[in-house]
């Protein structure tokens, strides 16, 4: 499933759009707000759910090759983070749902593949 398809199914907003949204495959989901922990555990292809919206999120996403970063609960994303994400080819998504609900819904979709 591509990020575009995932966004449509779960009504996610694509905040930073890059060519990868139609190419990159989503293969897993991971949720964690401790950056060191997340960095060590995120697998390539994961949707990473975090409440952080600072620049370091883009660095961690880029280092781990996660499929995209998903910010839950409509948390506002800093403008410089969005700009950096576009620059680094990192996809940021946003949703009004909580991290727990998003994990459940993404997991269900991936499991059915």
């Amino acid at each position: 499933m591509t990020i575009n398809q995932l966004s449509q199914k779960l009504d996610l907003k694509i905040v930073s759009n890059t060519p990868k949204t139609t190419e990159k495959a989503v293969t897993g989901v991971y949720s964690c707000d401790l950056l060191s922990h997340a960095m060590a555990k995120i697998n390539e292809g994961d949707v990473w759910i975090t409440v952080h919206t600072n620049l370091n999120v883009v660095a961690v996403a880029s280092l781990t090759d996660c499929a995209c970063v998903l910010i839950p609960e409509n948390i506002e994303i800093e403008k410089q983070t969005v700009e950096r994400a576009i620059e680094k080819d990192v996809i940021l998504l946003s949703s009004d749902k909580s991290a727990a609900v998003l994990c459940y819904e993404i997991f269900k979709l991936i499991k059915d593949l």
Binding site: M39, L55, S62, L63, D65, K88
Partner: peptide
């Protein structure tokens, strides 16, 4: 923090370009 991680990001790019295995690139960048 505006340029935090730039050095690692740059090194990561070099390692990928010279064909180092992705898991080694990831370990090194982390």
């Amino acid at each position: 923090f505006t340029i935090a991680g730039e050095a690692s990001s740059n090194v990561r790019k070099i390692l990928s370009q010279i064909g180092v295995a992705p898991d080694i690139v990831k370990r090194t960048s982390i």
